[in-house]
Design a protein around this nucleic acid. Structure first.
Lengths: 132, 132
DNA sequence: TATATATATGAGTATAATTGAATATAATCA
DNA sequence: TGATTATATTCAATTATACTCATATATATA
């Protein structure tokens, strides 16, 4: 049942956190990895689960793979999609993640810098977020 | 996260089948057990999971425990609830379950009869459903 | 009170999901 | 081409879920 696969995909904290970011904007794996502070393989796996259940889709741009919410999913599951967005707006953890995403985007760190010194970027993001 | 517990509870075929029935009407454990042809302990466990996640509620009436969708859940998660109902109406398995429920109700079998000869009741329900 | 019964729960097992570390793959760039 | 890198995948370990059978609990009834 499609319905059940969707609910299974949504029934995991890491995947909800990823989806929360992707609802804001499309992102590549290394960005998600950084903002949510999870391992690369874990991010990739969760993205795959969201993709297999039809919630998100991906596009390869040179060496990066960009993920975004699938428009087909939004159309076909609009009530669910609106529900998710509403509930996400009430959740502190998810709001914090959005703040981290904003800080990350404002920092103008690139995927190249992430590669060179990820720990510095993470430190920067934590400091910025603690200032709020 | 509440949200995740709800999705976890919904991410299981047996629980979706149970919820599908309860959306129609409140039912006791032995009725669910019979209509969905599952073991008593399994039905009870799934009902408990739906209950702890806040989707359904229960009321004990003499020796029976009646389960129904929690009104609080409907109010607080209305978009999700409407989504679920819409999707359920598109699913053949779930529509078949509703037919079985109707047959069961029309048969006027009681919980007492179920206890005495459950196999007869199951046979009857299967025959009735195959006629459609 | 003794018996029957509706439901819940415990124990054990089987299956599935999640994870990190290591490796494979595919694209880029020097 | 060879080195680097972004992402995916495999492996092995752990943890969580689901299921069945047996038993406990609470209620009803003779």
């Amino acid at each position: 049942m499609d319905l059940i696969e969707i609910f299974k995909a949504l029934g995991d904290e890491n995947r909800i956190r990823i989806l929360n970011l992707l609802i804001r904007q499309e992102l590549c794996v290394c960005e998600i990895e950084t903002v949510l502070d999870m391992t690369q393989s874990n991010a990739s796996r969760h993205l795959n689960k969201l993709k297999t259940s039809g919630i998100i889709t991906s596009e390869k741009k040179s060496q990066w793979v960009y993920y975004r919410v699938d428009n087909k999913f939004i159309e076909e599951n609009n009530l669910l999609y609106e529900f998710i967005k509403n509930k996400m707006a009430e959740n502190t953890q998810l709001l914090r993640d959005i703040e981290t995403l904003k800080k990350y985007k404002n920092s103008n760190f690139t995927c190249e810098q992430l590669r060179e010194d990820k720990s510095q970027v993470l430190k920067y993001l934590r400091e910025q977020c603690n200032n709020n």
